[in-house]
Design a binder for these strands. Structure first.
Lengths: 136, 136
DNA sequence: CTAAAACCTGTGAGCTACTCACAGGTCAAA
DNA sequence: TTTGACCTGTGAGTAGCTCACAGGTTTTAG
């Protein structure tokens, strides 16, 4: 019962404590019930939204303790939105620079490496680029 | 001589074969020359542009063999640009959905989990999301 | 009934591109 | 000469899976 999810992922989530299936005492097989399926689907959706596994586990644990996790979700969600917007801005900047470079390269010769340069196309790429894609 | 690059990164690149410094036979220290510095700077710039280490090594090896790597660079560069644009589009979609969700959530109650749902806010997030951020 | 196929188990490694920790050798300044 | 700053290689950790392996179980076909 993977519900479209790679079984290894399900087992991974189980190891990580996101799912807590019972065990068949006969053969030690894991028994996922409807609750686990809900948790799994929740986890997958949350991952798509950019939540980390620790965040998801936290939400799940709070839900287990009967505390409403939703205010926290709103919180992390807004943070995540801000992050997404930062990523977009960064990528747009990168795209602009790449486009500029590509048209500049139209006029540049290919140039076999001469011992001084490796590839002018890239070596002439300047301006500070603020990190390719991580946290600030 | 790190030129603003973390020494561990330099050593990592050396292990990976991007840099091939000579050795001081006395103390086994690595001796980076101007050529290595050029390769390092090239590699860092290429990384910022989204080239992978194998791609960079390939370019560097071609340059070593005195083949002009630039046509290949233009090639990979355009592929990378297309990828960046795909990523941007994906993130913009995500952002739009997140914004929509956030305003929809204004009207939703927080709702303590009741054994049937974990957090409506996320469980009611639907529509296929095409993968958060990887290759297609 | 049996043999092969299919699925389950836990453990451990591999992916990317670094980054950091550790133990020990080397070297320059005070 | 001692202290501190550097250098060395090795190995582990990061995130979130994914896959390989060896062995046990269960289902299915014949």
């Amino acid at each position: 019962m993977g519900a479209g999810v790679n079984p290894d992922t399900v087992r991974f989530y189980t190891r990580e404590g996101l799912l807590k299936p019972a065990r068949n005492p006969d053969n030690n097989y894991q028994l996922y019930d409807a609750e686990d399926l809900r948790r799994l689907r929740f986890a997958r959706k949350a991952r798509q939204l950019g939540f980390s596994l620790p965040e998801i586990r936290q939400i799940l644990e709070q839900a287990e303790d009967d505390h409403s996790p939703c205010p926290m979700v709103r919180d992390v969600f807004q943070q995540r939105l801000a992050e997404v917007e930062r990523e977009i801005a960064e990528l747009q900047q990168l795209r602009n620079r790449m486009n500029a470079a590509l048209s500049a390269w139209q006029d540049m010769p290919d140039g076999t490496p001469d011992g001084h340069t490796i590839c002018q196309l890239i070596e002439h790429w300047d301006e500070a680029v603020p990190e390719t894609g991580k946290k600030e």
